[in-house]
Design a protein around this nucleic acid. Structure first.
Lengths: 215, 215
DNA sequence: AGCACTATACCCCCAAAGTTGTATTTTTGT
DNA sequence: ACAAAAATACAACTTTGGGGGTATAGTGCT
């Protein structure tokens, strides 16, 4: 507890990174040792520097959320992870907290919440922003399609890849060409995706993907 | 140039507001006299306090962008406005700069860009983040679905109504029952919607609807 | 009164999506 | 090394979507 915690901060808004820097500089038992403005930089930093706590934004354009977290965890499993997000979808938060991360702080909250999160995980206690309950309007809207369930863990890399191409208005045969697959394989994947997520059709799939930031 | 500029900052992410505060505190010829975490607060502040420069985020949940700017301008026309945004849609930026605002700074850029913007408008010169050109990936991706055009104005009430039902995974015959229409009518509407928006299929439609907040 | 737009409705045809079922290979985790 | 999960591939069949037309009644604006 005597030497300062080594912190990495990652956010694709550099100006936010600058602000975060100043906020965290006010605390004396931590030290920012790395900054990243995208997922790739964060992974690089993890390979080179020992990190105690990573404060990351989920909505970065190169890595999609959970991919990044599991990548980081696989490099330095002991590192604590604080997710700083703009979204407050409670089903996402729950599954994240159970499996991967140590704190979830939304940006709607002030810096106080981030500091509390740091303090909390320092004692081994997971933290969720108290502000989240206040924003239930958003949450309820999303849960209508979420079925309140686990979702994303069920999807494989390949399936997510295909969802993204569907969202780009490609049909199954175009996707098969793009990925060097058989047309039948793509159809099988689509079938499995709809089944796993309990969705009725492509419209529902794209809606789901948007509400859950899969794209 | 002797007395400090009076600044208002507005952003719905309070933690960002905190960071911004610290960033701007490092400059000595300005002074933050008001903070707002939504559009309403910003308008209130404008009624009560004289503001020289307003630094605002466009994506706040109560006011939609241009509405807020014109509201503020109508209260204090002489006030300079810096928009701090996450989006870099060049068509929006152009129309904003011509008519309403004095600077457009994207959050992908660092604090340096914000400081440059402040300096620039101090001399009466409009400012746009130089980083914007670098992030053309995002822009292109969106324009492929936006067609860089007007879109929403083209859609009628009925069409938007139908889009919402499609997003709820209803098929044409279910929609026709729900709205007491003929199955053929619904099909016609769908056809017209895709044509107007120059989209290929339902996947593209739902994606478009999400990206443009039609739901 | 006239015109443009919207909403309504119908038809045909083909392509694509969705359903059900089977089956092999490859990758991954333990 | 073994088992589980994922990725691959195929077929037959039904339903839905999307493109091409055409047409008529209402609505709103000028």
């Amino acid at each position: 507890m005597n030497e300062p915690k080594k912190i990495l901060i990652a956010d694709d808004h550099k100006i936010f990174l600058d602000g975060l820097n100043l906020i965290l500089n006010e605390i004396n038992h931590i030290k920012i040792v790395a900054q990243a403005s995208n997922g790739k930089e964060a992974v690089e930093a993890f390979k080179n520097i020992e990190i105690d706590i990573a404060i990351i934004d989920l909505n970065m354009n190169d890595f999609s959320g959970i991919d990044l977290i599991s990548a980081l965890k696989s490099i330095q499993p002991k590192c604590k992870i604080i997710v700083l997000s703009m979204v407050d979808d409670s089903s996402i938060i729950k599954s994240l907290l159970n499996n991967y991360i140590d704190a979830y702080v939304i940006k709607y909250g002030g810096k106080q919440e981030l500091l509390e999160a740091l303090h909390s995980i320092d004692q081994g206690i997971p933290y969720i922003s108290p502000s989240i309950n206040l924003n239930q309007l958003e949450t309820e809207k999303k849960q209508s399609l979420n079925n309140g369930n686990i979702w994303i863990e069920k999807l494989t890399k390949r399936e997510i890849e295909i969802i993204k191409l569907i969202a780009l208005q490609m049909n199954s045969s175009q996707i098969s060409e793009k990925l060097f697959l058989s047309y039948y394989t793509v159809k099988t994947h689509r079938k499995n995706i709809l089944q796993k997520l309990e969705l009725k059709n492509t419209a529902g799939l794209i809606e789901f993907a948007n509400k859950n930031n899969l794209l």
